[in-house]
């Protein structure tokens, strides 16, 4: 079946249509901060400014903070009250391929490693509508990380900018089903498809930052005890949580109870391995020093995740580079990991 296309000016209508069935999320800016937010029913100005969000779409599936349940202390133990069920399925419009790949990487943790019902209930019912990049950022290096600005692998539908229209690529059965039920779409011509091909190539070539990850797993393994290297690497890090909390593949969380008198709530919230308290235990803290935390962050993404799931837990979205207060650049760090370390002393 031939691909469909939709006019750029018809996007509002399309989202409106989907809103009947889904809670539609789209890029939105609040005080200059781009995030995926529930679509307000009219604004599609993001088509003009949107490059990528500051807050990654993972926040929809693994929110910065969520109530796991509420509890009350009764006479016979605790009374558990689960959180309210979702009313709507979610449709995320405008997911970038890097972030979509990140979702697939998160699925490995929350589905394969251990089933997380909170995450999965939101994730499984959701539809990801991808939007190919036309203007990647200077900090982006997706093409080095197994994806590209227009990669459709991890979304249900992929939209490619072909001028006045978006070409719609139907990727999954879920995506096809949605398109079958969607009205007002036009058929794409051979010419449109050629344009899409061209657009993909152009976007691909716009990603100029490259990272060679060849053998990185082994290099990191060999450099694990190279304290001097890690200390140097970590020197300018200020141990804030920006690069981890806003990383689309970072999933660490903390669980806390808040109890007032006999009632309480159990919260789950984002946490970061960059914080000294993350590994604090009664007797000791194995990552008290900053360099150990920086090493953990780097190794988790480029060594441990590949060891467990055979994929690097970085998609080249570039957020950590763009947002870092001290311009700590993961690509420079990965490149500087020594090929092998000579015995010290």
């Amino acid at each position: 079946m031939a691909d469909k296309k939709v006019g750029k000016k018809d996007i509002a209508g399309l989202l409106e249509q989907w809103s009947q069935q889904f809670a539609v999320f789209a890029p939105s800016k609040e005080s200059g901060v781009a995030a995926m937010a529930e679509w307000d029913g009219k604004d599609i100005s993001f088509l003009d400014w949107y490059r990528n969000t500051v807050v990654p779409p993972k926040a929809i599936f693994l929110p910065p903070m969520e109530e796991l349940f509420r509890f009350q202390k009764g006479k016979e133990g605790y009374n558990i009250e689960p959180p309210p069920k979702d009313k709507h399925k979610r449709l995320i419009f405008g997911v970038r391929p890097c972030d979509a790949r990140a979702m697939a990487i998160l699925d490995m943790t929350f589905e394969q490693a251990l089933e997380d019902p909170y995450y999965l209930s939101r994730r499984k019912s959701a539809i990801l509508v991808g939007l190919g990049c036309t203007n990647p950022c200077e900090s982006c290096f997706c093409t080095s990380m197994g994806t590209s600005p227009t990669d459709q692998t991890n979304v249900d539908l992929m939209l490619i900018d072909i001028g006045d229209d978006f070409l719609i690529e139907e990727v999954t059965a879920k995506g096809k089903e949605l398109i079958a039920k969607t009205s007002g779409l036009k058929g794409a011509t051979k010419e449109d498809e050629a344009k899409a091909k061209q657009a993909k190539e152009t976007a691909y070539n716009k990603v100029t930052r490259k990272l060679d990850t060849e053998g990185i797993k082994d290099r990191l393994l060999a450099s694990f005890d190279d304290e001097e290297f890690w200390e140097k690497t970590a020197a300018k890090c200020i141990s804030c949580g920006i690069c981890t909390l806003l990383c689309p593949t970072c999933y660490c969380f903390d669980i806390n109870d808040e109890m007032v008198k006999q009632e309480g709530t159990r919260f789950r919230s984002w946490d970061s391995c960059g914080f000294p308290n993350y590994t604090k235990m009664p007797m000791e803290n194995p990552r008290q020093e900053k360099w150990r935390r920086v090493r953990q962050k780097v190794c988790h993404k480029y060594e441990f995740y590949p060891m467990t799931f055979n994929v690097i837990a970085c998609t080249g979205c570039g957020r950590c580079i763009r947002l870092c207060p001290v311009n700590w650049d993961i690509t420079q760090v990965i490149e500087s990991v020594p090929a092998r370390t000579e015995a010290k002393k």
């Binding site: 809670a23 609040e30 995030a35 937010a37 529930e38 307000d40 807050v55 926040a59 929809i60």
Partner: peptide, 8 residues
Amino acid sequence: GTKTKAGS
């Protein structure tokens, strides 16, 4: 008056 940023 604030928008929902994540799943509501």
